[in-house]
Design a protein around this nucleic acid. Sequence first.
DNA 1: CGACCGATCGTCT
DNA 2: GACGATCGGTCGA
Length: 202
Amino acid sequence: MQRLSTFFYTRPATLRIAQELLGKVLVTRFDGKETAGRILEVEAYLGTRDRACHAYGARRTPRNNSMYATGGIAYVYRCYGIHHLFNVVTNGPGIPHAILIRALEPLRGQEIMQHRMGRPVPAARLTRGPGNLARALGLDRSHDGRSLCSRDLFIASDGIVLSPGRIGRSPRIGVDYAGSDALLPYRFYIKGHPSISGRPVH
DNA sequence: CGACCGATCGTCT
DNA sequence: GACGATCGGTCGA
């Protein structure tokens, strides 16, 4: 397992990074409990001119402040008062790009994930959907702004390389309020995987 | 299968 | 005071 370096995240190529994150492994080691999952589905949010992005119009508030930091940190926010959504901040300082992680394939610590969900959950649904996976990995607002090159929070490559033909692409989910930007094809996923959220568009 | 609905609360207007 | 980058359950076709 090779941990991704700061350089991976700070490149000014968020759409490329989004695709490269597919197949990588997100790991948390909180409270001595290791949980890990392979990234199956992501969405890119491209800063101040993207209506679906929290930084649209250069909006900067206490909530989205970490988007403006340099790449390689987490942006975690609360959604609908219930869920936490985990993002990877990319690009250089002052450029508020981020990639939402939408689905994982559970690899390690499934017992711990089950316990965190607080109710019986089928294995395939444990880390399907951004709210579910954040909960399963123990991610919450307290991790906002944390480095993704930490001992207890990081993304690694285990050498698995996806052929381009296995990557699907579609508009982002749940951003109808974004007008024409809701149509931008900034969602990427591994085709045909049972833990993909929403409906794959081929 | 698709449509709809309630939960629940921090954030911003 | 309104609103979500969601989720799971329910209802009807």
